[in-house]
Design a protein around this nucleic acid. Structure first.
Lengths: 169, 169
DNA sequence: TATTGTTATACTCTATAACTATA
DNA sequence: TATAGTTATAGAGTATAACAATA
């Protein structure tokens, strides 16, 4: 009896010991997103634009399609975003001399500066939330989150992987 | 120098010690939602329908608007959901004798049975993810998640609060 | 006149398909 | 012929506004 309950800690009556993970995490994500919005608004960035700035920081990207894949966006969805960021001088976007179909993408100095300012403000807000947790729990929470984010079913695809090809051969 | 960095553990160069919380939590929520989908499909439930079944379990609800508020949905958005659940005999939905404008909502026995079966399957799937974490981190992670979910800016409004009224008097 | 639930409409976001240029 | 990027179109999901019943 109650073999499954042994996994989830459900009571003998069958009610679970905790809410569904998704039922806690999705609203938390919404709240964090809502908290970011005023910061983004203050700097004239959409969530997509900020996401682009974040992902260009690490490594310059060789095609827009690769960027779109990395941030789990449709390639057509980021075009207007890139148009705006380029017009404001926050990113470079130049045809690859070796294959002029592709567009090399990278941050400008100004783009990096804005990105750092926004991220700093956002993380300060997040720290106020995390302050509600005991120090040990908080460290374990962040560690767990980074661990789970790295799982293949959670992490966005990195460009250049074999699985990016339509034909697996 | 780097006064803000002291809060977030940023390096002296200004790069943060961790990704943004939202950048980890939102994709994790998406992955959990995607993992739920096959289970819901197998039982003919949409995410909204499952959410309704979850929230009716605890306490019967006296108006559809209150239910909508509790699950952060527009009141017009859940009508088709309730139509379907009622037609399938999963919920009761009867006019309140004391105010026949309102609809009393509660689970049927069959609705409770389905809800328990689906939730059990979903949480079993989630346990496989959590199994990647050390036991201590996992406990702290769940504890932290429940703590943060209970914060007023995260938790959905409970019906009957003073803040539900448009006029604060 | 105000409120509950419902229906009809409009709007936003996103994906799909068609087109241009390069290869 | 195939690919990167772009534009135009259509679809899904959601919110807004108008309506009917009840108080």
């Amino acid at each position: 009896m109650a073999e499954n309950a042994a996994h989830t800690g459900a009571t003998p009556e069958g009610r679970p010991a905790r809410p569904d993970l998704a039922a806690m995490i999705v609203p938390l994500g919404r709240a964090l997103t809502a908290a970011e919005q005023p910061v983004l608004d203050a700097h004239g960035l959409t969530m997509w634009a900020y996401t682009v700035l974040l992902h260009l920081e690490e490594t310059p990207i060789r095609t827009q399609a690769a960027l779109a894949g990395a941030i789990r966006a449709d390639k057509t969805r980021i075009i207007a975003v890139l148009d705006d960021l380029e017009a404001r001088g926050l990113i470079h976007r130049q045809p690859d001399p070796e294959d002029r179909r592709a567009r090399l993408l990278s941050l400008t100095t100004e783009g990096r500066r804005l990105r750092d300012a926004v991220q700093s403000a956002i993380q300060q807000g997040e720290e106020r939330l995390l302050a509600r947790l005991p120090a040990a729990d908080r460290a374990a929470f962040l560690r767990s989150l980074q661990e789970l984010s790295a799982l293949p079913e959670v992490a966005p695809r990195k460009p250049g992987h074999a699985t990016d090809r339509k034909d697996p051969h």
